[in-house]
Amino acid sequence: MIKFKFRVGIKIKEFAKMLVLLIFLSSLTFLLFMTKPKLFNMNFVAYTLAFDFLYVFTLFPLEGASFKKLVALLVGNVLSFIWNGLYPSFLLLFFQRNSISNKIFQFINPVVNALWIISIWAFGLSLVTIQNQRRTRTL
């Protein structure tokens, strides 16, 4: 029999809290997508969920004020909407759906999404953590 033990070490209670928050955020995102699919499109859903997942599972377990964590989470979701919902609609005023420019936009879109996700995640990290915990080293 193949044994495959893997213990990451997340406490059940902590995991349940994060899961509830993530389910709430996912439901909200899908709800928006179903009510206004042109504005809250599939791109918005995918990148917002990716951000929410990473943010909730990596930053919520850290010590720090929950309010600050939620603020950065909200900023990320709004930015995702601006980039994936509003900006492409704005672009369509100038470029046709199948034009080369639109294709190039689609091609670089994941990179730009990656960049805002990293930036907001890093912003969230520096916002929630205490700055004066700089560690001293024995040299």
Partner: peptide, 24 residues
């Protein structure tokens, strides 16, 4: 980025995380 960021957090140096997008 999340691996590096949390490593910095554990080292107590989250200010340096502002450079994370530059890793791209």
């Amino acid at each position: 980025f999340f691996e590096i960021g949390l490593g910095m957090y554990l080292d107590g140096r989250t200010r340096a995380c502002r450079l994370l997008p530059l890793l791209f």
